[in-house]
């Protein structure tokens, strides 16, 4: 599924890395624990998280998974935007909870990593 479709499903707003909206992801993983995310061997998955700080962006960068769905309307700071744009990481903001985002995307066929 394209990130553009994902964005529409969660009624999200892309705030950085918009050039990646036509990229396709098959898998997603939802977590607020970055060390957990960093154990994933796969790359190019969507990170669904409520963690709004520089480390979620760094984790996406190190994981070769430059797609973040930030739930619950968490604020994206100027520092986060600068880093995300520098690393070309797409951040989509959604007002929905992590549970709701994950449920919608799972129902739409995005696959779980485990």
């Amino acid at each position: 599924m394209t990130l553009r479709d994902i964005c529409a499903l969660v009624e999200g707003v892309p705030v950085s890395g918009q050039s990646r909206l036509d990229d396709i992801v098959e898998f997603a993983f939802a977590s607020d624990l970055m060390s957990d995310v960093l154990t994933i061997k796969r790359d190019q998955f969507l990170l669904i998280t409520g963690l709004a700080n520089l480390q979620s962006i760094r984790t996406a960068e190190m994981s070769d998974a430059p797609y973040i769905l930030l739930c619950r309307g968490k604020e994206v700071t100027k520092e986060m935007l600068d880093l995300a744009n520098e690393d070309d990481v797409l951040i989509i903001k959604s007002k929905f909870s992590m549970f709701r985002c994950a449920g919608i995307l799972f129902g739409a066929g995005v696959k779980p990593v485990y």
Partner: peptide
């Protein structure tokens, strides 16, 4: 915590430039 990851990010860029296999780069930077 604002600087955490800076070194890893720089090393990632260097390894990419050297053409190291992307799965190996991921192991290094993680």
């Amino acid at each position: 915590f604002t600087q955490a990851g800076h070194a890893s990010s720089q090393i990632k860029k260097s390894l990419k430039q050297l053409g190291v296999d992307s799965s190996v780069i991921k192991r290094v930077v993680v």
